Amino acid sequence: MSYDEFYVKSVVRSISDWPEPGVIFRDVTPVFKDPKAMRITCDAFIQRYIDSSITHVACIDARGFILGSVVAYQLNLPLVLIRKKGKLPGETIAEEYSLEYGSATVELQKDAIQEGDTVLIFDDLIATGGTVLAAASLIKRLGGQVAEVAALIDLPDLKGSQRIQDSGIPVFALLAYEGL
């Protein structure tokens, strides 16, 4: 781990027993409040994708918007929003996915992606991978291809990044936290 990655990891806050007992929540919001950590994080992603063939950056509601919008802006690429059901105006397509206790739905505007677009999916954290896989499904349904999934944090013990990779989509996370 580089000094920069160590610094960002030191800024991420771990909150025990939230949202339920036994869970350690990895809170990325302190990264947004720390200009140095935010710059290190954004610069790492910008450097990774500056020479890539991606044509769009798709961000997942809501913390994914913060980092993904900076990356899209710096790479001069269109920003695509993947939101919770009922939050996007106009014509949308929806994808339901399973949660540990129930289900959720994400949507994408029908005109956000076109046939042949190469999309980077951006989120703050990969846990079980359900949201990312639903987002990838939406992009594919509109004719786009997913180049990679990028996240600030991966929780490999929850096997989400493995599920995403098993679906044929590469994953890059700046940080990983073992344990739940």
Rank of each mutant, 00 (worst) to 15 (best):
M1V: 07
F6H: 14
V8E: 02
K9H: 06
S10E: 09
S14V: 10
W18G: 06
G22A: 14
D27A: 03
P30N: 15
F32R: 08
F32V: 10
K33E: 15
K33S: 15
K33P: 01
I40T: 10
T41N: 09
S53T: 15
I54D: 03
T55Q: 03
C59M: 13
C59I: 13
A62E: 07
F65A: 15
L67F: 12
G68H: 13
S69C: 12
V70N: 09
Q74T: 08
N76R: 09
L79N: 03
V80S: 04
L81A: 12
I82L: 08
K85L: 09
G90K: 14
A94S: 15
E95G: 01
E100C: 03
Y101P: 01
G102Q: 08
E107A: 11
L108S: 05
Q109K: 11
T118S: 13
I121K: 09
I126Y: 03
I126E: 01
T128E: 08
G129N: 11
L133I: 02
S137Y: 05
I139W: 01
I139Y: 05
K140H: 11
R141P: 00
R141L: 00
L142T: 06
L142I: 03
G143E: 04
V146T: 12
V149R: 13
A151E: 10
L152W: 12
L152F: 06
L152Q: 06
L152H: 05
L155K: 05
L155P: 01
D157C: 06
D157H: 10
L158M: 06
S161L: 07
D166L: 13
P170G: 13
V171W: 04
A176D: 14
A176V: 07
Y177Q: 13
